[in-house]
């Protein structure tokens, strides 16, 4: 029976890693509820002496972070909705509709993924400046509407749709767009939910491009506002922690609710190659 010590050891290791993973979040939450100055007292305490929501009130009333919250929500929702349309059309076509140059085009797209986004950033900024999209939400949203990994995800899933079903609809005289809308979209639902979660979380968390495009602090998304805030309020630990909670909470909740779809989608790209 030498299995017991090993089993206890494995569980102990699991718990230690779990605590190390959660500790920063717990401290963030706890410090966000402390009265101003308590997180920088000696000796330091882990829990607030008198829990207060004053920091959250300051964020919304004095620093207008509620507005940035809405900016982030708008950018994430609109870019996800539009990307779903673009990616579902393209992914389905690459999987199921034969057209000249299809496989060569698809391979080129995949290869282009090694080009880091930063190579495009400076010229893209000049381009957006020409068309007046700098310092607009659309300047953040539009360049990210056709993610290649999304097209890849949908295509891999769409490959398994039965051809007979599509052909039967064609024999019945349905047009290609009708087939996409009435037949294909419902069948693609699981992968579209997965991609939607990916896309929303990605857009919500994105930092470098919004930082470059948005110049007016009334248009900042939450990550940009938070990075800006630490410039002036680095000493206000409790306030900064409340801002971090506000930024992290929506994506964390979304992940907890939809984690199965999220995690399944993640392994698809990695294993099915």
């Amino acid at each position: 029976m030498r299995r017991w010590p090993a089993l206890v050891g494995v569980h102990l290791a699991l718990v230690i890693v779990a605590v190390a993973t959660l500790l920063p979040f717990l401290w963030m939450l706890s410090a966000s509820l402390m009265p101003a100055g308590e997180a920088s007292q000696w000796p330091p305490s882990f829990l607030p002496s008198r829990p207060t929501l004053a920091n959250y009130r300051a964020l919304f009333q004095r620093l207008d972070l509620g507005r940035c919250f809405l900016n982030s929500a708008f950018v994430a929702v609109v870019s996800t909705a539009l990307a779903l349309l673009v990616v579902s059309l393209a992914g389905y076509a690459f999987a199921k509709l034969r057209f000249p140059g299809r496989s060569r085009l698809f391979r080129t797209l995949l290869t282009a993924m090694v080009i880091p986004a930063q190579v495009a950033m400076l010229p893209l900024f000049l381009l957006l400046r020409e068309v007046g999209l700098v310092n607009t939400y659309w300047g953040v949203i539009i360049p990210a509407l056709a993610p290649v990994f999304g097209i890849f995800m949908v295509r891999q899933y769409a490959l398994s749709l039965p051809d007979e079903l599509l052909d039967a609809a064609r024999v019945d005289g349905a047009g290609e767009f009708t087939i996409y809308r009435r037949l294909v979209l419902p069948l693609l639902r699981p992968i579209l939910v997965t991609f939607g979660v990916f896309s929303f979380i990605g857009a919500w968390n994105d930092f470098m491009w919004p930082l470059i495009v948005l110049t007016d602090d009334r248009r900042y998304t939450l990550p940009v506002a938070l990075a800006n805030l630490i410039g002036e309020h680095a000493q206000d630990i409790e306030l900064m922690m409340a801002g971090s909670v506000l930024t992290v909470l929506p994506v964390l909740l979304l992940f907890l609710v939809l984690q199965r779809t999220y995690v399944e989608g993640l392994t698809m790209g990695g294993v099915k190659e």
Binding site: V17, A18, T21, L22, P24, F25, W27, M28, A31, A39, I201, W204, N205, F207, L222, P223, V224, L226, A227, I230, I237, M240, M241, G243, S244, V245, T247, V248, V251, L252, L254, F255, Q259, Y262, V263
Partner: peptide
């Protein structure tokens, strides 16, 4: 639990770790 940090916002998490 192990996956949670992956989905969180890098800026917010970097602010936390700064402290």
């Amino acid at each position: 639990v192990y996956f949670a940090p992956v989905v969180t916002t890098m800026v917010a998490v970097a602010v936390v770790w700064r402290y």
